[in-house]
Amino acid sequence: MITFENVNKTYPNGTTAALDVSFTVPAGSTVALLGPSGAGKTTLLRMVNRLVDPDSGRITVGDRDISQINPVTLRRSIGYVLQEGGLLPHKRVLDNVALVARLNGASKADARERAQRMLTLVGLDAELGSRFPHQLSGGQQQRVGVARALVGEADVMLMDEPFGAVDPMIRRELQAQTRRLQSELGKTVLLVTHDVDEAFSLADQIVVLRTGGSVAQYATPEELLTNPADDFVADLLGLSDGARDLHVVDRGGRALVTDGSGRFIGRVRA
C-alpha cells in the first residue's frame, strides 16, 4: 500500500508540482497518475522512492513513513520502470537485470539465474540476454525494463510513462502483458501517464491531476466516465468534445460502433 497525505512540493524556480495531494494506492492494485504535462505526475511518482523529497506532508509505503527510510535501501525495495527502459548501455541485457538482484544481495550466479527467469517471464528469448541494450528494439528494451523492475521481487512498482516511446501496436501488446503479469503477481503499482487510453487500460483507479499539482478527481475509470468532477476532468478525458462518445449504427443487420467523429472503430458482439 502507498499513501500520500497532504503532500506539497514547490521547486526552487517557483513551479508547484504538488498541492495538498492525498490518495491511497491499495495493496495489489494499480493506480495511474493522469494529467497534462506540468501537473506534477512524475514528481509524485519520484517522491515514492525518494528521488524527490516533499516540502511537507507524509508518504508511506506499506505503513512505513518513507522519510525515515534510507533512500538507497528504500529504492532497492521498489521496482521502477522508465520510458525507453532506462537501461545501462554498457552492460549486457542479462547483467542489466541481474544488477538489481545483486544490489539486493543475491549471489552472482543466483542473480543471473533470476534475471534469466524474469526475461522469460516478460517474453524475451534467452539469447537476447547476451546482447547490449542498443541491439534490441524499443519494445524489447521496454520489456527488459519491466524485467529489471520485477527481479528484485519488490511488492511496489513505479512506472514512469513506461510505454510512451514505443509504437502503438507494441504498446498495446506491452499493456496486455502488463495486465497479465499484474493479475499473476498482484503488485502494488503506481503509474504515470498522459495517455488516457493507457490509464484506462491498466489502472484500477486514476488520480486526475491538474496543472499546478492538485488532485482534480480520484476515482475508478467507470466513475470518471459517469461522473467527471468538473469541466477540467471532462475535457482531459475527451468527454466534452464528444471524442469519447461512441455510437452504435446499424449496417445491414450488423451493429457497428463509431467514434465521436463518426469513424467506424469496431462492432458489437451479439
Binding site: T73, R75, R76, I78, Y80, Q83, G86, L87, L103
Partner: peptide, 21 residues
C-alpha cells in the same frame, strides 16, 4: 539523465554509481 535516474531508482549508491555507471 534517464540512465542516471534509473541507477538511482534501483538503489545504486553514489560511489557505485560513479564507478559502474
Amino acid at each position: 539523465p534517464r540512465i542516471l535516474d534509473a541507477s538511482d531508482a534501483m538503489g545504486v549508491t553514489r560511489w557505485r554509481r560513479f564507478w559502474s555507471v
